[in-house]
Amino acid sequence: MSNRRRAHALIFAGSIIFAFLLQLTPLPLALAAFKPYWLALVMIYWAIEAPHRVGLGFAFLIGLGGDLLIGQVLGEQALRLVVLVFIVLRFRSRLRFFPIGQQSLAVLALLLNDRMVVMMIRGFAGDPMPPLDFWVAPVVGMLAWPFVFLLLDDLRARIRAKPT
């Protein structure tokens, strides 16, 4: 049992670290704007599947970590992830039972909302408005969601099936 839990925790931590690295890894210049917010996708997954691990405080800390690595203003991603995880936890009981297509649409809505939060924060900070392709990344995130979901689900199912 404890072995299985340890493996579960490993997947949990590993997926978040991997999301951080993926966020930093560059895409070719033409595709740079299409990079989805990997950290958000992974956080959504864990908020749906393991809400006992992912609370608002955890999202806050991960967001601060993200700001430390990637961000420009400390607290920006903390705010974004807290909003995101709050919405997911609020509607978790429904999101869980959505078919994957519907879930992807919900993820699109979450990521679009996240983009609006970013725009608000940057607007207050006095940054210029982002270009139009700023809004493409949520769509890519929606398309990436089924793969993230199935991959993490499959990893967890393997652990569950493994005899210990």
Binding site: G63, L74, V82
Partner: peptide, 8 residues
């Protein structure tokens, strides 16, 4: 948490 993030 939102207030904390904004203050930071």
């Amino acid at each position: 948490y939102l207030a904390a993030a904004m203050i930071i």
